[in-house]
Amino acid sequence: MTVSTASGAPPADRAALAGLAPDLTARKPRGPWRLALERLRRARLALLGLVVLLALCLAALFAPVLAPYGENEIDLFNITALPSAEHVLGTDDLGRDELTRLLYGGRVSLMVGIAAALLSAGVGIGVGAAAGYYGGWIDAALMRFVDVMLAFPAIFLLLILFSMRGSSVGGVILFLGLFSWMWLARIIRGEFLSLKQRDFAEAARAVGVPDGRIILRHLLPNVIAAIVVSTTLNMAYAMLSEAALSFLGFGVPPDVPTWGNMLNAARPYYTVQPQLAIAPGLTLTVAVLAINFVGDGLRDALDPHRS
């Protein structure tokens, strides 16, 4: 996805988030049967996504058991071999089993996605809550910072950082997380600005409930849908970005198997050995697809406007 891997917040991300409070399709009056059918279909997709995602996670988790070969088992006598009974997906440029790499690759790719999304959610909640709850100069300063961060062409910056500082799995997680929290922060801030004026928040403040408690117990539960949806989307975004950076040769170090690194390694051979490029790319696509289905399902389930 052109824009999303490249930018701080993908357009679909924004479209989905924008659609959060009032989902545009949701307002359309339609018959109860139609509505039910639609929700069932969406739920089925979400369920499918969940099953696929779980399967991928389990496969990654049990890679040492499932994989037919060792993670970095080099076989110089069998370089870029075509698929065979011994190597179902063939071997890569070092004679390593492609299926094995695919399984191990899932570990890092999925971990990068989950960790970066959690980090981004953390920062987004923190900044958004602080700005929205306290308002005033804190709000002004934080929002100007958000503006600056949003104005950065993120992929350019990430490439510069990784090419110069070298990279590690931790570094990729850290920086992908730190460049994708801004839209969530904006949404939470907006919601908080109006929520804190509401009676229950005013009342809590009046009886002296500490700020932290008001934020955690009274305000945050109201924006949980935004957080969950944004986090699933950010997970997809982080996985695609990791792949993009690794594909360009500046992501996760090359000896660590990730789907992006496998694509990078396949590039010199993909015209003669297409399966080396197709397998990791397709797996990544399926994983992201599953995450997006789950995200949509969660949005439907959590959306307070659609009871």
């Binding site: 970095n72 080099i74 110089l76 440029d93 070092l94 090419s163 040769g249 500046f250 090359p254 000896d255 390694a265 010199p268």
Partner: peptide, 16 residues
Amino acid sequence: VSGNTDNERIAQVVAQ
């Protein structure tokens, strides 16, 4: 040196 794919492969073989 990053990006030198031949040397990357050689390094991994030597390391093993």
